[in-house]
Nucleic acid binder design. Structure first.
Lengths: 224, 224
DNA sequence: CCAAAAGTGTTCCGTCTACACCCATGG
DNA sequence: CCATGGGTGTAGACGGAACACTTTTGG
């Protein structure tokens, strides 16, 4: 039984905008297309939505293929549907933005897929409308970083306040006063100081903090 | 030439969440489905995306069918892609949120289509995931009403400050202090007072204001 | 001993909030 | 003349922004 047979179907894909944070910089995961059309062009990683999976499932599958990671923080950025956005044929794509901790990502998988971490400044020209997707994703992150606990997804479980501040600076694209930032952090209960000290980033050592998910779930107010 | 033939296509539709403002209340335009599946259920108005039109074009076409209006303020709310969201078959839908001035809307067309303006409080159970779409649309409006000049789209060209305040209250779902509101409005250059007086809403009469688009375009900062 | 990053408080200023009364008019 | 909605100002609280020096330690 087909209700809608008089209408035409289209291909639907998902594209993953994968953000990572490394050496104090926000980076994007991109690769060269290994198929036609557009073979060899820099591109986000994507895939077609299958008949038996939801959009979220498709995005998670693509991301899993790409990184071996599950349960990654992911948000829909939007649907992109210009008629000729894809040079191959009519394809509507739904972009998803993922935030991952680079340390969780097995380098071997990255290299197998021929992927690179690049900063926004060093972004090459990308396939199709992928640059627009990225732009929209960053706008979304900027809008939300002060009202949702996004930033922790880009860091290891234990992080220093300087690292956290760098994440904010990278996303917002502006410098933040260290004392004001730390003052605000102190007023947030679910960012816990641990007894552990990080000795890698400085001689003196920096206290390690942790995002307490349970505490946040109890009172999911966030304002930074 | 088909690059993607090994993948499966799906139906893609757009659904329009149409907001209007009447008698101090935010209202939604809904109707009873006139086709199977779900015939007779309350629903948003939607339509399938055609091969030769972009998502935006499809949304505009559907809205035009519905209201006779063009150049309406419209924003994408997101793509909805659960496998069984549509009882008829697999359909991915992209929701768009439109803000219209009820006065511009020809009642005849509304009645022809069997549509009703209903407040959020009086919303019946809706077809498929349309309630989720509406919820997401309102969240989006709330997030943006203080940083984008949305509100004017719900009002006539000339409006009183009380009307404008009611729009804010309706979207935010909370009361606002009249004096504080008016103080903030005064500090916004592109909300111009005119010499005209509205005598319909009160005996004394209220000054009519106007949103000056050119002035806003010159300095598109908005903060209320 | 010095370079490099960690850590820490105070003051000022502008913004938001709370709050109550008079005005003009049509009926 | 009164009911109805229009219009106005101020004081206190609060939060954000600016700002510089001391501490620790590995090399």
């Amino acid at each position: 039984m087909t209700y809608y047979s008089e209408h035409s179907k289209v291909w639907v894909s998902v594209d993953c905008i994968v953000f990572g944070f490394e050496n104090g910089k926000l980076k994007l995961l991109i690769g060269k297309r290994q198929m036609d059309p557009g073979r060899g062009e820099w591109s986000l990683y994507g895939g077609f939505v299958r008949a038996n999976e939801s959009l979220e499932d498709a995005a998670n599958r693509v991301l899993y293929d790409l990184t071996g990671l599950k349960k990654v923080y992911m948000k829909q950025v939007g649907a992109f549907g210009a008629i000729d956005r894809d040079p191959g044929d009519r394809v509507i794509s739904v972009a998803y933005c993922a935030l991952i901790n680079v340390k969780d990502y097995d380098e071997k998988i990255r290299i197998e897929h021929g992927l690179e971490w690049v900063t926004r400044q060093n972004l090459p020209k990308l396939y199709s409308d992928h640059e627009i997707m990225i732009h929209k994703a960053i706008t979304l992150l900027r809008r939300r970083i002060n009202t949702e606990p996004l930033s922790f997804n880009l860091l290891p479980d234990l992080f220093t306040l300087t690292q956290l501040q760098k994440v904010y600076e990278a996303i917002l694209g502006e410098e933040i006063d260290k004392r004001n930032f730390r003052k605000r952090i102190k007023s947030i209960d679910f960012i816990e100081k641990t007894d552990l000290i990080d000795k890698l980033s400085s001689k003196r050592g920096a206290a390690l903090y942790r995002f307490n998910k349970k505490m946040y779930a109890d009172d999911p107010t966030f304002k930074l």
